[in-house]
Amino acid sequence: MAEAILYRDVSKVFASDSKAVLALSHIDLAVEENSFTTIVGPSGCGKTTLLRISGGLMSPTSGQVLYKGKPLNGVHREIGFITQDSNLYPWLTLQENVEFALNLRGIPRQESNQKAQGLIQMLGLKGFERHFPSQLSGGMQKRASIARTLIYEPNVILMDEPFGPLDAQTRLILQQELLRIWNQRKKTILFITHDLVEAVALSDLVVILSPRPGRLKAVVEVKIPRPRNVFEIHGMPGFTESYGRVWNCMRDQIYMGTEV
């Protein structure tokens, strides 16, 4: 399989007049097309920075990021970005939010309406089209932000702890739906999380970063067969082994963390 994103010796320094921080140090990584990759690591290890660099929202201090073999140059339109806060436009209704990207592209109203309806249906948001984001629960807001990303069919979706603020049950439901959607429309997903079970349950590849500066500590391949059932992921073949390997890499860091 071809690589969707290739990181070549990527480093990032954040410098201001009062201090300079090395956020990422010499990351070499290949993310395969249509794969599901999660990035885990302690807080402040540069996960979000890596994601922003992948989307061209930030450029690396040194090194290179290639998208389908070509160097990234600024924001590119083939990515979708789903953040921890759902960041829907509060002045637009759910349906208008979902249609926003098509609206920007000047797609005719009727066509964008139709597409939005399909996604609203698919994500179980029927009946809430005319609600404003503040009238939706956290889970529904998240569904809406997924729908508004899917509508313009990006090849790569970057997700920055998308399910972090949700309650445990909603979280499981959305994880399962994300897998279903990903299975239906093949996309490359780069997913950041703190939750090791979530990482193992969802992905093909778990990338583990060390505490700051973020270095590539390990890459664990998850060999749980698909389709997966996240509700019973603990019982699926290969889970214990994959989880064990991820946990082994994280253990030292987490113990280190408790001493502080």
Partner: peptide, 10 residues
């Protein structure tokens, strides 16, 4: 963040 998202959307 609202601006960034719009930028990503083109």
């Amino acid at each position: 963040e609202l601006i960034q998202i719009a930028r990503v959307m083109g």
